[in-house]
Write a protein that binds this DNA or RNA. Structure first.
Lengths: 177, 177
DNA sequence: GCACATTGGTTGACGCAACAACTTATGCGG
DNA sequence: CCGCATAAGTTGTTGCGTCAACCAATGTGC
């Protein structure tokens, strides 16, 4: 029925692409769960919460504006706002108005937050290694970087959200994630 | 403080791995949103709902046991159960007890469901192509398949959930996803 | 300096996913 | 066949993410 609906010039996926797509979708579906469950079990943390603290911990003064923190954690502002509120209630971070711009809010990593992520880091990194990098050759690691980079260019063209800036290698204390 | 807690033999990530990890996390975070928002906007469907119908549509008779469908969509049974209930209320699928095993439930794709996915497919595939495969060289597509395959071996060792079986290329009608 | 758009951020409502508890049916050992 | 373990699904609760609405502060044109 209705053989074409004005958009029959669809560029369908060929066999190779279909295979890659199936695998990619599976990874995207399964990876978050693997990360979350380990962190939840061992450290009462979400993967995203860990990520937030990791970004804060490597920022000078362990402070970042909310919008900057959102960008560095690949999240929207509302999402971050909710997460930070919950984390603040647990004493992991602290929010204070920004002196230079009264609209802005600064998020600080507290001592308790710093201690928490330090304790959580080893097991988390070990988990990442076991589930990801133990499976890849050094060559594949390079390929993965190039591929993910290419995808990010399409997924977040203007770099509005994504963390292509993660080269900001502050040689600060720990490098766990 | 407390320099080692009995687990200081952590295999931290080196620079290359860290770079790859940052990119991969960003992709995993951003990709679902890109897929969901297009399907929600154009077809009132979740990406996962689309995936469910796609798997059903390529099954013989457009029927699958719930547990089999869950495995093929990389999901847990509770998750699928909720989703299918909602889809049934919208007339996209139908649930009927399995004759051979009274415990089991068969999920059927309805005519309405079939029509829905046929309408949704072109725009969805176009979206996938624009955000993913347009960014990759044919060589990278192959690399991605190998990498994702290696990861899946670690993420789902026993193949309990993942779709390594997606080579079941039923040359059926459409191949959209 | 005064409208007005824009930026930065928060809040509330709603939807979906994870987890645990529960129900029912099957299979198996004796 | 009877008791028990296991398999297949469903359901309820709880927590997180998204979206839209909102508020406050900044800046900009005139």
């Amino acid at each position: 029925m209705c053989e074409n609906a004005g958009m029959d010039d669809v560029r369908w996926l060929n066999d190779d692409e279909l295979k890659a797509w199936t695998r990619l979708v599976a990874v995207v579906e399964l990876l978050p769960g693997v990360l979350d469950s380990q962190l939840r079990r061992d450290s009462r943390l979400t993967n995203y919460e860990y990520f937030v603290m990791a970004r804060l911990s490597e920022a000078p003064g362990m402070v970042l504006r909310m919008s900057e923190l959102a960008a560095r954690t690949n999240a929207t502002l509302p999402r971050l706002s909710h997460v930070v509120r919950r984390m603040e209630e647990r004493g992991l971070v602290e929010r204070r108005p920004c002196p230079e711009d009264a609209r802005a809010t600064n998020a600080y990593l507290t001592d308790r937050g710093w201690a928490t992520i330090q304790e959580a880091a080893p097991a988390h990194v070990e988990n990442v290694r076991r589930h990801v990098f133990d499976a890849l050759t050094p060559q594949q690691v390079g390929q993965l970087t190039a591929i993910a980079d290419a995808l990010l260019e399409k997924l977040d063209p203007d770099g509005l959200i994504a963390v292509r800036t993660a080269d900001v290698r502050t040689g600060r204390p720990v490098e766990r994630d």
